[in-house]
């Protein structure tokens, strides 16, 4: 009995350490985004004679993406509640919905990119567009990684069930997903809304 408790204590300490370490990693990721935000702030007006960003953006589209991502952050939270309850099916459901919402977000974003490119406004056109595509695109890459992580974890949960190892994975993943929505708040504000100020 003493040994089991010790193993559990060891596990709990390890969980705490890993969650903290992941949190620290998220802070470093935030700092990388800070550079991209700073670069965007400095270069957003350098359109090299091309159209200003506000002439290219569609605010309704940006709002749609924002609401989708926010909802997915909410459903990820509901997924974590299901994890606490130990219900494998509910976990799969809620995170499955989160996954689909994330996919929809990506779809809209890619559509926006494709439209710009089709009209000849690429990342090679000007510093303004380079910084736009990079900031928003990097966030999109993070979302893609998150979806890949989510998909893989859900498959393992489906096969192995909800063990402590996979619970720890989902905890980190939900941290990551919430963090991506927080970064998006600032992309929505600084990139899209601020273009019209």
């Amino acid at each position: 009995m003493v040994k089991e408790h010790e193993t559990e204590n060891h596990e709990a300490q390890a969980d705490d350490r890993v969650a903290f370490g992941f949190w620290v990693y998220l802070m470093t990721d935030l700092l990388m985004f800070a550079v991209l935000f700073a670069t965007f702030a400095v270069l957003r007006g350098n359109t090299f004679g091309g159209p200003a960003l506000r002439e290219l953006f569609s605010l309704p589209l940006a709002l749609t993406e924002t609401l989708i991502l926010l909802t997915s952050s909410f459903t990820a939270g509901l997924g974590m509640l299901a994890v606490r309850r130990g219900s494998k099916n509910q976990v799969l459901t809620w995170f499955g919905i989160t996954f689909l919402l994330g996919l929809a977000f990506l779809g809209f974003e890619l559509k926006e990119f494709a439209e710009f490119i089709h009209e000849g406004h690429t990342w090679q056109s000007s510093a303004s567009l380079s910084s736009f595509f990079t900031l928003v695109g990097t966030h999109g890459l993070h979302i893609t990684s998150g979806l890949l992580w989510m998909g893989t974890t859900l498959v393992f949960i489906w096969k192995r069930g909800l063990n402590s190892h996979l619970v720890r994975k989902l905890t980190l993943l939900s941290l990551f997903w919430h963090f991506l929505d927080i970064v998006w708040i600032f992309i929505f504000t600084v990139v899209y809304l601020m273009a019209y100020v």
Partner: peptide
């Protein structure tokens, strides 16, 4: 992380023809 991001931007300029730090196109 600041270095990682800055090197990434220079890489984007060189590999994808972006214009963060170039002499033209608003860099």
């Amino acid at each position: 992380p600041l270095l990682t991001a800055t090197l990434f931007l220079l890489f984007l300029d060189r590999y994808f023809g972006m214009h963060f730090f170039t002499t033209g196109s608003g860099g």
